[in-house]
């Protein structure tokens, strides 16, 4: 048991190193603008200012709401598209699914900026730039291929006998999917949903190209405002960042167990 203490000490040290940038973010968010460029910088906010946070609460709440809507919308859209497809790929295995899987794999690697240029043309034509659901569609392109692949390997691990049994009980393909396979792959659904949420939450490229003009803008653009304009207000930037990571952190802590299980069982069964 003495060795355990030694491990804890090393673990604490490693965590401290890893989280230093996060600490630094918090530190900077509390530093008054005048001390920002002090050399060497203060390791602790000696006379902290909460000005940054006051501004965030004052200016960023609408952005916050938009981000939440976009992220949740992306989760719903992603799962609605990915779950049935994954069920088909995993359990119905129709002919010609191989190329489709390959397309999904490649689709994941296409940089968002390249997609954004093409999407912008379409969006302008349809008049859906600067809308929440336009952004939801764009953000889902990051998550859909991943979600299909993860859910496929997850649903593949649902025993065929269970599916067979449902069939014998007279359930059609959709019933089987909805009442048997989907509930059985709950971990996978949570994982895919969480990733969709995180990506949409932190997306900047699509937001900047497709949604930078209207009144419904996400949080990343709110932060970018502080970076891009005539004054780089680090305490406001970092305060927004701190606030922005709260819901994501809460979500991850809640869902962590599912995620780990989701990814690995997907990986192992692949």
């Amino acid at each position: 048991m003495t060795r355990s203490w030694w491990h804890t000490a090393v673990g604490l040290l490693l965590t401290a190193v890893m989280l230093f940038p996060v600490y630094w973010m918090v530190n900077v968010s509390l530093t008054p603008p005048g001390d920002m460029r002090k050399s060497p910088p203060d390791l602790f906010p000696g006379n902290p200012t909460f000005e940054g946070y006051a501004r965030v609460l004052d200016e960023q709440l609408p952005y916050f709401g938009t981000s939440l809507l976009v992220a949740l919308g992306t989760v719903v859209l992603t799962l609605a598209l990915a779950a049935p497809a994954a069920y088909s790929l995993a359990k119905l295995r129709p002919r010609g699914r191989g190329p489709l899987t390959f397309v999904l794999l490649v689709a994941q690697m296409i940089p968002g900026i390249i997609m954004a240029l093409g999407l912008y043309g379409i969006y302008v034509k349809l008049g859906i730039t600067n809308t929440v659901w336009g952004l939801v569609f764009a953000d889902s392109t990051i998550a859909v291929p991943f979600a299909v692949l993860i859910l496929t390997s997850f649903m593949a691990s649902v025993p065929d006998e269970v599916v067979q049994a449902a069939r014998i009980d007279g359930a059609g393909a959709f019933r089987t999917f909805w009442s048997v396979v989907l509930p059985a792959s709950c971990n996978g659904v949570v994982t895919a949903g969480l990733f969709a949420f995180l990506w949409a939450w932190s997306d900047f490229v699509f937001a900047a190209t497709l949604d930078s003009g209207g009144s419904m803008q996400p949080l990343t653009l709110g932060i970018y405002r502080y970076i891009g304009n005539n004054n780089q207000e680090w305490n406001a930037i970092m305060a927004t960042a701190v606030v922005a990571s709260v819901p994501a952190t809460a979500l991850l802590v809640l869902a962590q167990r599912f995620v780990a299980a989701g990814i690995t069982s997907g990986a192992v069964k692949d």
Partner: peptide, 22 residues
């Protein structure tokens, strides 16, 4: 407050998109 703006936005967007499509 927030929600109603959003609702309106979506409706407007849907209508605009629909119109420009038809």
């Amino acid at each position: 407050m927030k929600r109603s703006t959003f609702g309106r936005r979506v409706t407007v967007a849907l209508v605009t998109a629909g119109l420009s499509l038809t």
